[in-house]
Design a protein around this nucleic acid. Structure first.
Lengths: 193, 193
DNA sequence: TTTTTAATTGACTAATCACTCAACAAAAGT
DNA sequence: ACTTTTGTTGAGTGATTAGTCAATTAAAAA
């Protein structure tokens, strides 16, 4: 086996970190707690990650990539532009609910001033630009109101996040088709010209 | 004078704490940094606040009260229901922009699991209920879509927060009446039945 | 098998933190 | 004026933290 154990311990540490960071907050979580939760020795964390901040950075970037990728899942299976927009919408909150810890970790870092360096990671900027162009296309096609793209993206993300918070609090609603339909209607009413 | 200095130092500490908590994060800010920023000795902080957590709690509650109060400013000067809703909307983001540090502090605490005890403060629960009834009234009057009030409140607050983030990033837009009008239109399109 | 390389441990260190306390200063009360 | 209460200081304390390192084990290469 080609260092299977190595990959395992790294993953164990990242998973443990996600859980504890969300439960206790970034700075309130000692590295010793992370290694304990992962069931490994305290020192090994610094073998895989140079510093605690490096661990946070790597965790953020990997989760963000996972999230942004999931948003475009199955997008080619849909023909209509509006259908695609709806799929992006539902992909977003579905991933966030199915990966609630990871999503909460993203929110926590995004709401923190202390890690600006993470957010300016090139791969993340690239994904952001890609998504921005996507929205711009909808504006050009007059499927979405002609207003500053940054404003649109910000409010879209805000609405999706509040949807996630609500569905996490009331999980039954996730299978309530009438509710989902109404929520989508509201979302698109917000966007349409 | 009736202990004017006492009040002053308390206020100085709270202001310094707000600034540093937003800049560095709750747990990354030592109490020593707070007292230094406030220009007082390290020990005095624990004369006014039993513990650091107590300081955070008090700060949160006082800011939250200030914010929720500002939301209903001048509400009686407006006659129409829709006008009142619009005033609530604009009051919300105006306060948040004018008191950006305080607003960011609220967001930071709200996005943290470590201080559940703060959010369940009776005065805050009361304000929340009051606002909830307010929304319910609009639903009953059929000015707002008939969908779960918690869902409505969550998304309203999300939209307002994204408005604040945007206007903080692009301050000029705040005086752009056409933009504000469009933003309001979108907001109400989201809510209307 | 032997050698080399990589993974893993946990005791250790230097720094930092929340909080205390004895001493002093200023106000208020008498 | 004197006493009591309240405000204020900053050095000190014990606990906790991120990160190190010499030693041990396991895997890979020779």
């Amino acid at each position: 086996m080609i260092s299977q154990l190595k990959i395992d311990k790294r993953e164990l540490l990242l998973e443990a970190a996600t859980k504890l960071f969300v439960e206790r907050g970034l700075h309130a979580t000692p590295t010793s707690a992370i290694s304990k939760e992962a069931g490994v020795s305290a020192g090994i964390l610094f073998h895989y990650f140079k510093t605690k901040d490096d661990l946070i950075d790597e965790l953020y970037v990997s989760i963000k990539k996972e999230y942004t990728s999931s948003i475009l899942n199955d997008i080619d299976r849909i023909k209509s532009d509006l259908g695609k927009l709806r799929l992006i919408w539902s992909n977003s909150w579905n991933w966030a609910i199915d990966n609630n810890l990871k999503f909460k970790f993203l929110l926590q870092v995004d709401n923190t001033n202390c890690s600006e360096r993470v957010k300016s990671h090139p791969e993340i900027i690239a994904k952001f630009e890609k998504f921005k162009n996507f929205i711009q296309e909808y504006v050009d096609k007059e499927l979405v109101k002609n207003i500053d793209t940054y404003f649109l993206m910000g409010s879209m993300f805000a609405l999706i996040t509040s949807m996630v918070t609500y569905l996490t609090l009331f999980p039954k609603k996730r299978n309530d088709q009438a509710f989902i339909e109404q929520a989508w209607e509201q979302f698109y009413n917000y966007l349409k010209p």
